[in-house]
Design a protein around this nucleic acid. Structure first.
Length: 341
DNA sequence: GATACGTGGCA
DNA sequence: TTGCCAAGTAT
């Protein structure tokens, strides 16, 4: 392996005329060689990692896959109860595969991005039809599964099957940006250079590479956080290029995710109704307030009221409904709208 | 590469 | 209260 201690990044910083004195070579000299970094972070992980059920040795690859899908853009604390119930109810892919997709969407609850539930169900079906009911263990096979992208395929191959994979998620990207590149935040999109850097930083052995991936990810989640990182708790702060450079601010401002008044908000409100509904919901109920209809719809009153409070323009509601139908998150029966059967 | 896609907690 | 952010994927 190329032993780029990340001296290259440090040197580039030091050569830059705009870099503060802290980033000069004498400050950067505290940077540890890669093997020392591996040991420092792995040791930190040993005593600081959270005990999460999908990290337990008895957790199956299916449990790991479910956790990875659920954790996409979703905090651990919200995933925990849903994951536990999911694995209790569907301990193997085949258990989920024989259910209607709508059951997966319902069990997904309020985790957000419910299309993930649909894809996880589709993945279970594919696992049964293409892999004999066992979660496949290689990156290319995993990548074929619905809802599994480059990150998730690498994570499952590494954490469920012990393979040496270049795992790059938002936490790892941020740690690398600070530790190696001296930037406050990673670039706005994943670059080939970042993948190369991550691949070069990876320990050679399979076991040590898995521990390294988990350690860097955990450091990003607990210490090297996006806002107000806890650098005094960081086991490798002495080697951090960003600290050495004097904590330069981000060179861009991330564009926020709009929410109020968006189609997404309307879709979310409609889905909340469908999740609660025990029978098909007449389309008129989405368009008109229950009070106008002269009766109280059983069971769905509260989420329906929330939907109407949004006061979405008719064309927006129409667009949201069409989107949900197009995505397969809902289907229209003669009796009304419902989760997919 | 940019955009759409849920939800809720925290500063 | 507003905006940011959380183990990304698909188009």
């Amino acid at each position: 392996m190329a032993l780029i201690y990340y001296a290259e990044s440090i040197k580039a910083l030091a050569d830059s005329p705009t870099v503060p004195a802290a980033a000069r070579p004498e400050a950067a000299s505290a940077a540890l060689p890669l093997p020392a970094l591996h040991e420092a972070l792995t040791n930190w992980f040993e005593s600081n990692a959270r005990e999460l059920p999908w990290r337990a040795t008895e957790c199956t690859p299916w449990g790991v896959l479910v956790s990875e899908i659920m954790l996409q853009q979703t905090p651990v604390v919200r995933v925990l109860p849903v994951w536990t119930e999911w694995l209790r109810r569907w301990p193997e892919p085949a258990d989920l595969a024989r259910e209607p997709a709508g059951e997966a969407v319902r069990a997904w609850g309020r985790l957000g991005y419910p299309r993930r539930a649909l894809r996880l169900h589709a993945a279970a079906v594919a696992i049964c039809s293409d892999h004999g009911g066992e979660v496949p263990g290689t990156h290319p096979e995993l990548l074929e599964l619905p809802g599994v992208g480059s990150y998730t395929a690498a994570a499952v191959a590494a954490f469920a099957f012990g393979r040496r994979e270049t795992v790059v998620d938002t936490n790892i990207r941020r740690v690398h940006a600070r530790l190696f590149s001296g930037s406050a935040l990673p670039s706005q999109s994943l670059t080939a250079a970042e993948m190369r850097l991550a691949a070069q930083a990876l320990p050679d052995g399979a076991g040590s590479s898995v521990r390294w991936n988990a350690s860097v990810m955990e450091l990003g989640a607990l210490v090297c956080t996006a806002r107000s990182p806890k650098c005094r708790q960081c086991p490798v702060s002495g080697s951090c290029a960003w600290l050495a450079a004097g904590e330069p601010p981000p060179t861009y401002t991330p564009k926020g995710q709009s929410w109020h008044g968006t189609d997404r908000q309307v879709r979310g409100a409609v889905m909340a109704v469908l999740r609660v509904a025990e029978s098909p919901v007449a389309p008129e109920l989405f368009q008109r307030a229950p009070a106008d209809l002269g009766f109280e719809p059983a069971g769905i009153g509260i989420p329906l009221a929330a939907l109407h409070r949004l006061n979405a323009p008719p064309e927006q509601l129409e667009r949201a409904l069409a989107g949900l139908l197009g995505d397969g998150l809902a289907e229209l029966q003669p009796a009304g709208l419902q989760l997919p059967a």
